[in-house]
Design a protein around this nucleic acid. Structure first.
Lengths: 220, 220
DNA sequence: CCTTGCGATGAATCCATAT
DNA sequence: GATATGGATTCATCGCAAG
């Protein structure tokens, strides 16, 4: 299970929960405001967001085979809460990988640039041996997408391709918050199988089309 | 205040609290086992470690001027607890910088390399304006030291030199867990003033000598 | 085809103003 | 007085057009 859930980044101030996720993430580009729908679940009250994350992690525990992996994106603000949710669901937390977005992120006056997002990863029980072991890097450097985005927080496909390698060849990857479906695209291109879910209809359609684009005439 | 406290990384398993910090951090080089003393406070029970961190953060709040900065190193395991301690002490948490140690770290079979450490940073109250503002990167890439280390968890001087820039020129930097004194060396070389503390006598002497080496004949 | 330059952008943050 | 709103800010990078 590899997923990029809503970050619920209104965690510290109540007022943030009243903004729509669009107005938080899209600063000035008016075309996005008109064409891209909101993220569902990002404006939740902190407690409700934690509950949602806990349920997602419990679902991971339920569907994962023994030795299966859970990978979840999060920002620095809600990393502690998500770590707790993963732990509470009974997933064995193994570490934190870093997505280094590079220097093309907004600078921070008299402070450190907010340049990284985090990927918490754990397993259902102990790590399974496999025929050809993989050794993945702990810091993944990929620039953020600038144009041609079909989702507000769309991840680079190359980043997802790196992550997908954690699943044994031919395995199944599940993304319950698939958004525009980049996880699915990277999964299918790697020859693995994909199951995805998305609550916003417009994003679901986008994801379906992008996955179809990879598979061509094959059954979907 | 810039400091690299004991990580208390025996947080999840009780047996870890019985290991000495040496046996955890020094893998194969037998000479270290003989010559370098333990870190004080690293084998604490999780609750005792949290208490120690909370006290350190409260001390930061006490000594920092308004607008002053707190920077603390931590690994992924105890990041949530330290974040909580900083928050509880009344320091305003601003973000998380990443120390990318590069590929020269131990690979992780069927998993992501544990390649990063984290630097939580916050301020006492709001950020002060300064004559010439600084814009610091969010990911700092510096290889770990391999030889010539005088402390088990010694940080590269170039890394500390980057961090020291958060303090206005001519300012004072305080490190209550200074270890072998790399923070002090970087601070003094940058023309700032330094105050340090260290509970292990042998490390204190090392730090004193290294700082003297920078200052030369000046008063220490 | 390669280089230069201009413009737009970012899971943001700050501060002054309004409620 | 505390909280919410809105506009200005900052720079490394990418895209695109022009030379």
């Amino acid at each position: 299970m590899i997923t990029d859930p809503p970050y619920g980044s209104g965690g510290f101030l109540a007022k943030d929960t009243t903004k729509s996720s669009k107005s938080k993430y899209v600063s000035s580009d008016a075309s996005y405001q008109q064409t891209l729908p909101d993220i569902d679940g990002d404006s939740l009250h902190p407690e409700a967001w934690k509950e949602l994350m806990l349920n997602a992690c419990k679902e991971a525990k339920r569907v994962l085979k023994p030795g299966g992996y859970l990978l979840m994106f999060i920002d620095w603000r809600n990393l502690p809460a998500l770590q707790e949710a993963i732990h509470a669901a009974g997933i064995q937390l193994r570490g934190t990988a870093v997505w280094d977005k590079g220097r093309a992120t907004r600078p921070n006056k008299n402070g450190f640039r907010n340049q990284a997002e985090y990927i918490l990863w754990g397993t259902h029980g102990s790590i399974a041996t496999r025929e050809t072991p993989v050794y993945l890097p702990g810091v993944l450097q990929h620039a953020t997408l600038t144009n041609g985005k079909v989702h507000i927080t769309q991840k680079p496909e190359a980043l997802m391709s790196d992550l997908v390698e954690i699943c044994p060849p031919g395995g199944v990857i599940y993304d319950p918050f698939m958004g525009s479906g980049t996880t699915g695209v990277a999964t299918l291109k790697s020859g693995r199988q994909f199951i995805g879910a998305e609550s916003v209809g417009q994003y679901f359609e986008t994801a379906l089309n992008r996955c179809r684009g990879v598979l061509g005439g094959e059954r979907i």
